[in-house]
Design a protein around this nucleic acid. Sequence first.
DNA 1: GAAAAACATTGAAGTAGATTAAGAAAACCG
DNA 2: CGGTTTTCTTAATCTACTTCAATGTTTTTC
Lengths: 194, 194
Amino acid sequence: MDTSLILQNISKHIQLTPEEEAHFVSLLRPRSLKRKEMLLQEGEVCRYSTFVTNGCLRGYTLDDNGNEHVLSFAPEDWWIADLYSYFSQRPGTLYIEANQPSEVLQLSKDSQEQLYQEIPKFERFFRILIEKSLVSNQQRLLDNLSLPAQERYLNFCRRYPSLVNSLPRKQIASYIGVTPEFFSKMMKELLRGG
Amino acid sequence: MDTSLILQNISKHIQLTPEEEAHFVSLLRPRSLKRKEMLLQEGEVCRYSTFVTNGCLRGYTLDDNGNEHVLSFAPEDWWIADLYSYFSQRPGTLYIEANQPSEVLQLSKDSQEQLYQEIPKFERFFRILIEKSLVSNQQRLLDNLSLPAQERYLNFCRRYPSLVNSLPRKQIASYIGVTPEFFSKMMKELLRGG
DNA sequence: GAAAAACATTGAAGTAGATTAAGAAAACCG
DNA sequence: CGGTTTTCTTAATCTACTTCAATGTTTTTC
């Protein structure tokens, strides 16, 4: 398994000794996913934090009408989980699905707790990771409260430039909170210079 | 200054020795706020995490049209900050204002970093605090993407039962993302049993 | 306790975005 | 490749919510 990306990801915030790196790596479980393969479904307990080394996953909920609402995308070098379920180890509401054939590394909740005990630096690492998530999540919430769909789309383009042209438009529409039909109209407007 | 509430808040997640408690308390700076007093304004750097021992604060942004969008309320026993600005120590976009005369305890960013070094347990405490914020923020975002205003209001009532009857309705309207006018109509519907 | 300020309600008119339905274009897969 | 499924677009109709404007009602302030 290729662990260079995840070790590099971690080294952005904490420095590990070679022994610590080796120990961390020993806790990881690699997994390959086919396109459309489900990593997690509503009602299940999320037992792993998942790091994407290749491909792209997406996390979403289904509402009462069966409409999908995308909470997050996880391209290469990102983490994903149903955090409510992962932290509480209770059944969650999120679906996590591979958008493309993907390679991931999984860290179980138990391993993560063990890691906090053995190498306290990891407590710092995951704290910082969550801090960043929280900040961007708050910004996205404020965007949804205060900006029209067009602006939210432009913000999406800034935040995920690599994804804009590789995701189905309906998934982007769902992420910014509009229907595919409206998204289509909006794009026409945008290109026409509106 | 009365530190019993904040020590109790902390003891929910980590156990401190009396010496550690004393040291922590020595880093806190008490502050009294009048109604409408601003703790933070757009463009300023957020230098403190603020814990509310009494009263209630609110965090909001102003959009281009001067409309207020409430990101969070902080009643007694809650923490509040402009997290983007606090973590990055760069100018932020949030206003934090006292809804009522309030008593708060402030922990500076420097003190917090110092605390992480001196008493690593605090790294755990704040990690857990942020984990919980992130989970509830994600849920709120999904609510905004998938539920009509009425349902979002009912969720608000569940989340902040103590605030429902003590906040101006326009602030609740702003929190759930509708205008005061629409909120008024919605409440009429709700009471009529709709 | 009066004046001022902030908050709340109502109604009419307008709009961003949803829904439905249908056809066209891609993308997938055997 | 060719058939199936998924995605994308367009257009007509519909609705949840906004805006504006006016009025009434609390709450604040001094």
